[in-house]
């Protein structure tokens, strides 16, 4: 199909969807005039009911926990897909040769960059742990903290030399972290099934003070934090492997 024909098809499609969009938006409540009941009820019940102050995290992990479990499995499966796709054509011997060539040709990382990255590793990791463990009280949670934790570990790559990392044999530790995180959240769900007879219902006392409130929500944050860290690092290392595997011309 020529470019021109394609643009014509696009124009027709866009015009049609614009019509549908306008039709749909006419009945949406005006900006600032939210009228739904569900959200209001959840926001009102969060503190008395679950003893946690972050209504978004309570909604994510408790009231809508099953949605989040499925979302987590989407994350899990797609990262497995990424690793499978990128490993299909891996050839160890060629990989080793290409990596040696890459090491010779790669411009050296500057010392300034290395020191800055090294200095940031600790503070960023600490921030990540804060975000994960305080997720049920203040803005944050497992997903956000997991991303930050993975960033701190990527800074280790920046500070060191990635080419030293194991090549062509996968990353067993990362895969274990990734799988453990995903399984842990499902286990919390089964804990609810055993403790209360309902899958993913809170089965831990949500009383207590300080960090130890919210029942199972802090545990869910931890497991999701682990999984997101493992997932992101797996994707980053697999893509970096590709960069090192590709023969230079």
């Amino acid at each position: 199909m020529s470019r021109r024909a394609r643009l014509v098809v696009l124009a027709v499609g866009l015009a049609l969807s614009a019509g549908v969009l306008v039709w749909g938006l006419v009945s949406v409540p005006g900006f600032g005039h939210y009228s739904g009941r569900y959200g209001r009820i959840l926001a009102r019940d969060t503190v008395p009911d679950r003893h946690a102050t972050n209504a978004v995290v309570v909604t994510t992990f408790d009231y809508r926990g099953v949605d989040t479990l499925i979302e987590e499995f989407i994350l899990f499966v797609s990262v497995v897909g990424v690793t499978l796709l990128l490993r299909t054509q891996r050839d160890e011997e060629r990989a080793r040769r290409a990596a040696r060539a890459a090491e010779r040709e790669d411009p050296e990382t500057s010392d300034a960059l290395r020191w800055v990255a090294l200095g940031l590793v600790g503070p960023v990791a600490l921030l990540a742990m804060y975000i994960v463990t305080h997720g049920h009280l203040t803005p944050g949670g497992g997903f956000q903290g997991g991303i930050v934790l993975a960033t701190s570990l990527v800074l280790v790559f920046v500070a060191g030399r990635f080419a030293i990392a194991r090549r062509g044999r996968g990353h067993p530790l990362l895969e274990a972290v990734h799988g453990t995180g995903a399984a842990a959240f499902a286990m919390i769900g089964f804990g609810g099934l055993i403790g209360t007879g309902v899958f993913l219902r809170n089965f831990i006392s949500s009383g207590g003070t300080g960090l130890l409130t919210g029942g199972m929500i802090p545990l869910a944050n931890l497991s999701v934090g682990l999984e997101v860290t493992g997932a992101l690092l797996l994707v980053v290392t697999e893509l970096l492997d590709q960069r090192l595997l590709r023969p230079r011309r």
């Binding site: 939210y34 739904g36 569900y38 959200g39 209001r40 959840l42 926001a43 969060t46 209504a55 978004v56 309570v58 909604t59 994510t60 809508r64 949605d67 989040t68 979302e71 989407i74 994350l75 949670g141 997903f143 997101v228």
Partner: peptide, 14 residues
């Protein structure tokens, strides 16, 4: 509304 915020989080992850 906290529900749409949780949905947006799901959206970002996906």
């Amino acid at each position: 509304d906290p529900v749409v915020q949780a949905l947006t989080l799901t959206d970002v992850v996906v």
